[in-house]
């Protein structure tokens, strides 16, 4: 069994597409018109284009808003991405106007930061500390 795809609900697919590609740096994998204004829209990491896809899914279901509002109020991220250097990403993304609810903090074996994807989600970035020699 493999993890092939996971999803985040997004308020606006077009806006999310721009954020996840132009700002975060992912690459479009599938973009299929599903009719009614909805798209089957997935992105992948350019570092691993055959790896797991992230589906940017319309947030129209009435359960999505209360679910996300409650999690976001407490600062809980809905997805986590690995980065080589969370401090460098924090600087790069902040300069692009990305808002962070948590700047980089060392938490045990990882250093994490949490950003707002502008489409209704908090996303955690994490860098694993190098294994001790």
């Amino acid at each position: 069994m493999r993890i092939h795809m996971t999803s985040v609900f997004v308020d606006d697919q077009e806006k999310a597409h721009r954020f996840y590609t132009d700002v975060l740096g992912f690459r479009t994998k599938h973009d299929v018109d599903m009719g009614g204004g909805a798209r089957w829209l997935t992105v992948v990491s350019p570092e691993n284009p055959e790896g797991a896809e992230l589906l940017l899914e319309p947030a129209g279901h009435p359960a999505v808003k209360p679910y996300r509002d409650a999690l976001i109020a407490d600062g809980i991220p809905l997805a986590q991405f690995a980065v080589d250097d969370v401090h460098a990403e924090y600087e790069r993304l902040s300069a692009l106007g990305v808002e962070f609810t948590q700047s980089p903090v060392e938490m045990g074996p990882v250093t994490t930061a949490v950003l707002d994807d502008t489409c209704g989600n908090l996303i955690q970035l994490a860098t694993e500390a190098p294994a001790p020699e």
Partner: peptide, 17 residues
């Protein structure tokens, strides 16, 4: 150490540190 934290961040700090 850092004022202005979400509940998520505080919980993470308490657990991991």
């Amino acid at each position: 150490e850092c004022t202005g934290q979400t509940l998520f961040e505080l919980c993470g700090r308490l657990t991991t540190r």
